[in-house]
Computed example of a mutant assay.
Amino acid sequence: MGKLVQLSTVAVLVAIIAILGVRSKQYGWEKDEVVKIFLDLKERLGFWAIPLYVSIHTLSLSFCLPFAVFFEGGASLLFGFLPAVFCVFVAKVLAASLSFWIGSYIRTCFADNAPLQDICPTTTQIEKNIFINGFLCKNPNNVTASDFKTSRLNHSGDTDNFLRSSVDFVTAAEFPGLNTMGLSVARTDMAVDGMVQPHYHPRASEMFYVSRGVIIAGFIDTRGRLFQQHLKEGDVFVFPRGLLHFCLNAGFDLATAFSVLNSQNPGVMRLADAMFLTDSDVLQKLMKKMIGLSAMELGHMKNTTLMGLEENVSS
Score class of each variant (00 low, 15 high):
G218Q: 02
C137S: 06
L163Y: 11
K232I: 11
D221F: 04
S166R: 00
F219D: 01
L183S: 04
V170F: 08
D158A: 08
R225H: 11
Q197W: 14
T159C: 13
P176N: 00
T123L: 05
T122E: 00
T122K: 09
L153Y: 07
S211G: 12
T159M: 09
A96I: 11
N113Q: 15
P176F: 03
F169E: 15
I220V: 13
T122F: 05
I130H: 08
P121H: 02
E233Y: 01
Y200D: 05
M207W: 15
R164P: 02
K138F: 05
T171K: 00
V192W: 08
S151E: 12
Q229H: 12
E206G: 03
S211A: 14
F131T: 09
A173C: 05
I106T: 03
T171F: 06
S97D: 13
L163C: 05
S156Y: 15
L226W: 06
P140K: 01
P115F: 06
G177K: 00
S146G: 08
D160E: 15
S184T: 09
I102K: 01
M207R: 12
A191N: 13
T124S: 15
R187L: 07
V214K: 06
Q197S: 13
S97M: 14
S211C: 09
A96Q: 14
A191C: 12
N129E: 12
F175V: 01
K138H: 08
G182R: 02
G194M: 06
S156W: 13
G218S: 03
R225L: 11
G213W: 00
N142I: 05
S184W: 03
A172E: 10
G103K: 11
F135N: 12
E174F: 03
N113M: 14
S166W: 01
F148D: 05
G194Y: 06
S146T: 14
S104K: 15
F100Y: 14
T144M: 04
T108E: 15
S166T: 02
D221Q: 01
N154A: 13
T144L: 00
G103Y: 14
S97I: 14
G218H: 03
E174R: 00
L116K: 14
L183K: 02
Y200Q: 06
P202I: 10
L153I: 04
T124W: 15
H155Q: 14
V192K: 04
F169N: 12
D168P: 02
V214D: 08
D158K: 04
V210E: 03
R107G: 12
N139S: 10
Y200V: 05
V192N: 07
A96F: 13
L163E: 10
H201K: 00
F169S: 10
A191Y: 09
P140Q: 02
A96P: 01
T144I: 08
S165V: 05
P140V: 01
N141I: 09
F219I: 01
D189S: 09
T144H: 08
P140M: 02
G157N: 08
G177L: 03
M181G: 04
M181F: 12
R107K: 14
M190F: 10
C137N: 04
F148T: 03
G182N: 06
S184N: 08
S104L: 14
S205H: 09
V196N: 11
D158Y: 10
K128P: 06
L163S: 13
I126G: 11
H201G: 02
I106E: 10
L136A: 07
T159G: 03
G103C: 13
G194V: 04
L178Y: 02
D118I: 11
R212L: 08
A186E: 05
K232W: 13
